[in-house]
Nucleic acid binder design. Sequence first.
DNA 1: TTACTGAAAACTGTCAACAGAATACACTTC
DNA 2: GAAGTGTATTCTGTTGACAGTTTTCAGTAA
Lengths: 234, 234
Amino acid sequence: MKAELEFLQNHSLTSVLRREMETLVLSGEFAPGERLNENSLAVRFSVSRGPVREVCRALAERGLLELVPNRGVFMRRIDEDQAAELYDVRAGLFASAARLLATKATVAQLSELEGLLERMEEAVRMHSLDLYYPLNLEFHDSILRFAGNARLHKAYSELVKELHLFRERALLQGGGLEVSNVEHRRIVKALQERDAAAAMEAAFLHVLSGKSRMTLPAGTGYPAGQAAGSGDVV
Amino acid sequence: MKAELEFLQNHSLTSVLRREMETLVLSGEFAPGERLNENSLAVRFSVSRGPVREVCRALAERGLLELVPNRGVFMRRIDEDQAAELYDVRAGLFASAARLLATKATVAQLSELEGLLERMEEAVRMHSLDLYYPLNLEFHDSILRFAGNARLHKAYSELVKELHLFRERALLQGGGLEVSNVEHRRIVKALQERDAAAAMEAAFLHVLSGKSRMTLPAGTGYPAGQAAGSGDVV
DNA sequence: TTACTGAAAACTGTCAACAGAATACACTTC
DNA sequence: GAAGTGTATTCTGTTGACAGTTTTCAGTAA
């Protein structure tokens, strides 16, 4: 009962709708560039168009939707160039987190990262993307979390979501997994040695490396990954 | 005539209102934590509350305003801890830009930065903050611009605006100017030598150094700077 | 068949009004 | 005089409606 009261006080209809629509947009239900009908959305969520419009504006501000005057809201279409730009931003944020963490990581945190490394190594040995992806996601997220900067963490998460709209990206294949984890190990090593500059460098290069893995070399025959449920790019 | 047509097509009332309200919020007219009255704003801009609300939601998404259910929108209040967090994010973005620029800076760009360095040095000699600040702003902005990543530049600019809401920060004083420019020179030197890692390191440290200069040591007798018109933090 | 024209439908942009919550304030009580 | 209570006011949250624009599509001419 008390929890319900608090819920009503902290979550307005709009804020709930916001989260609903964010997950809807990120779910991949709409194709890139597809137009969203305000009325349909309003009917779908049983609210009027006002809140829907507000949420659309907010999501557009975050780069998930695109607004065109008098024409409506469209799913943000992220091409390869834009994705490449996003990777550079992400690299900076991740590098910042790694650098900050280098000077303050606790032993427990380092061993937790070490544990993730080992589990990812196991996944590499098994050539299992399904095992690797969630661990990889947790690894990155842990570094952001351990860095102890909520704003940095938030900025990073939002960027990852935005990058998630780039659907044409390739899934990590074969040797890519191993390379990725070697880079992970390099980051953790720098953290263990409390070498801030090295940690930053390793983290930055890791994301940039992911950027170059983003698109498959032409003619490999692999289809563009749908990446549904992968949760993160490597 | 053609220009006016284009204006109408690209700038809806809401988008114009958005910019107006952003400058209003950043102008410092409202005190941190102060509540904004939707009705007053609507009357002030001669529109109805709908567009005002949409814009408020968008600005809240960007961190300039704060929303409290059933109570309204408030000027974002940024305390010292939050400002410190923002500096870390900014450091990452700036470091990323510097690193990217190191590998692609043209001779013309490098000499432009060099020119700014010299003009800032002149300002340091004259102990003139009024001369130094705009140059410092242009220096940072140039690096972001030259890095050639629009998204990175946008993220950085938005962050600087957000940081602008932290009004209690100190203005750079006395020797601070000189220290700041020494750091600038270190960045440019790394860029000239095409040393990506060094450029990233120097850029990161420069922002972190600015963070430590953010608050005056207790008891210096300097009043907290209003920083009106300074445009940027150092 | 193709290209153009014009009306109809659909949708967005904006506004005004109503319901509910929060605040302010006068009143009562101790 | 101070604390608490109840009412009135103010403001937000949400909705429905209207005006203007864009899109669709049938009809016409080349």
